[in-house]
Design a binder for these strands. Structure first.
Lengths: 222, 222, 222, 222
DNA sequence: GATGAATGAGCTTTCATTCAT
DNA sequence: GATGAATGAAAGCTCATTCAT
């Protein structure tokens, strides 16, 4: 999926029954330290010294687990992809009220995306994308694209069931996603403010759903 | 407007007859060099050495015009704000076809925002926003917010004229802006691809306008 | 013989029936790895990591057999002394044609000394001699000096037998040895070229023998 | 003549009337520091930290004058070549006593070659030759080869003048040079001892000249 | 005995910044 | 005003060595 090396320098994993070997523990410490430092300072701004200190290991140990700063960064971003993708919840296909499903989904998505940690990730990855295109691409595919694909699939089901009237489900998915996120996400990306109050988010989602339903609600029932 | 120093160290401008004095020339060279280097490498990734070389001046000269790397960066970003704001064209209030105005505006906006240079600016600023909040805020205000305000004002006029039916013109402005940009901008931010072909952009704009008009076209005709 | 530690940390050798015990095997592996790495990279340029990898043992094992990098290096050089000394073949005392004996010896010596491996050893030892005088001395005694002593002893026999007329056999031995080696050895030491073709070596030896015989052939027979 | 870069990173030399610009002074300091440190510790054993300290400049300054450790080392060795070649004195073509000329030359050569500094240079260069073949080659050409060429030219003149009978002047030159140097040079290379007492050197030279004259003195007197 | 994870000092190199000219 | 030589702190990374298993 990506053009970058994959944990290449990690100590060989013997994979015995999932027991936490010392190296697993160190690996977790290192990635956690890297997460804190890289997301706060960006790739160029972070120093391996800081990573080591925050992770609570020696500088040398970092290089036992990862070949280079870049390799550690890439491993971290991949780890974050995984988490990101896992956070995208399922849609309740059984629920007949499509607007309700979209509202729930939209709110969950926003609560996740506006977390300072996620904002930091977006910032860091987009900045790094100029240097490491593979990282940007992998993140996009695991994040925005993956989410849009899932939503489009949901739309396709609902269209089949007669609950929505959409000619291009992919386009509709992107339209919906962008219309909820855009405003608050941009504000936070550029560091305008603290996360907005929940009501503000809910209102933004509600308006986006209204707009969406106004356009894509089946017309023929009337 | 911003909490950061303002060209503080630039040589006093005596502004005689608008003729290009040597220091103006140097200043322009430096900012041009800074633009090339900072936008390519980010704040942390850029070195003053590179800036000096690309600008064609000595390293010492940089510090004659700007107190520090940070001051130079801030001056650069402010310069870019100015250009950005200037690019946001006026709306043709006289044109009765609102959809046509929106299409023209949307296309012009996208052509500008998807330029690799602008993408680099967005990346650089959002990354820097974690370190220099003032810079992020200033950019947001001069860019996205300024554009949204102008669009909202246009909407307000059209509502007054009966050409649109919008209760919250600010929200409508953001909805419109995000629904055009989101998809392609994100793809480029994460380095997915070259600028999309003009047709793709036109199609995205057309769809956004359709959606917008479906929701906000005055209903009284029925 | 030398002022440096002597295999101090090697596992005690119980020497049972000469069978290859595991530790003997490891020891051989380690010394072979050390030989490859130290002769290629020099003492400072070599890393224990590389030695371990090339030897096919773990880094820790190195320190089971040798106290330190320096101790391993010294052990290696001593091992090489032994091989070097063993290579210096006997002289055929029975052969009446002294010139023939010298030619054979000279050719054998040169073939050995110009082997890339031996050149690497000379380079490495002479460089290390500044840091570890004992190593340089031991090598000199086991190599050049040992060879000269053997040759001088042969000369003494021939003088006694009336086949040569030499007043200072030691000096004569050094003169002979240097006049064969010098040119080609220096060229290879300074990396001028691949080993010279056998004919070139044979010619150099022949000339040296001629010169030697011209000076030291007994004059009174005529 | 060599395949390595030539003072590439040194500040541009404006070469005005040989006046000592500040950078010339620093350059000399740096090369002097490098000489002390590299010749004492070898290329790998030396650290740029030590060079800076001994030279009395900051570490950063080293990199203003030389791109890298390797570049500094190469510049140093080239500087030493120059000195070496300059030390090889002319032969007194007018002196009719060839043996006397050879003795004087031999003694001067040995006094130079056995200086601890020169020994250190030989060690360092031969060790470095494995890593940087260009350096070894350049040194060989500027040193041993250059000297042998000069001596061969002198021989050619004397042959023409009837003072010597030599068929291969090149070979004769190498034979002579090696037979004086070999013994003492090797002893010092392998760190056997302090420089030998002058008498020992004179004796070695005298014997070499005797041997040489025995072989190459014109035979037509009989 | 053998391992390899872990260390911290030290390596080469870069960088933002200063200052005499 | 403009320069570029000089700096020292800090960067990424390597290494000889140790120690629990």
């Amino acid at each position: 999926m990506s053009d970058t090396a994959d944990f290449a320098s990690a100590p060989a994993e013997t994979d015995r029954a999932g027991s936490a070997r010392p190296s697993d523990e160190k690996m977790r410490q290192i990635l956690e330290g890297a997460r804190r430092v890289f997301l706060a300072d960006g790739f160029d701004g972070a120093s391996m010294n800081d990573v080591a200190r925050v992770a609570g290991v020696s500088k040398g140990t970092l290089y036992v687990y990862f070949q280079s700063k870049q390799a550690l960064f890439e491993a971290l971003i991949k780890e974050e992809h995984r988490r990101t993708a896992e956070r995208l919840s399922m849609f309740d296909e059984a629920e007949p009220d499509v607007a309700l499903v979209l509202k729930r989904f939209g709110n969950a998505l926003m609560n996740f995306m506006l977390m300072p940690e996620h904002i930091a990730l977006v910032r860091t990855v987009s900045a790094a994308a100029a240097k490491f295109p593979g990282i940007g691409r992998a993140f996009f595919e695991a994040g925005p694209q993956y989410g849009a694909d899932r939503l489009a699939a949901y739309f396709a089901h609902q269209v089949e069931a007669g609950a929505l009237a959409i000619d291009d489900v992919n386009l509709a998915a992107y339209q919906f996603l962008e219309s909820i996120q855009g405003f608050h996400l941009k504000r936070m990306l550029f560091c305008i403010c603290e996360p907005p109050p929940p009501q503000a988010v809910e209102r933004a989602v509600a308006r986006a759903v209204e707009m969406f339903m106004a356009v894509y609600r089946p017309k023929q029932l009337s």
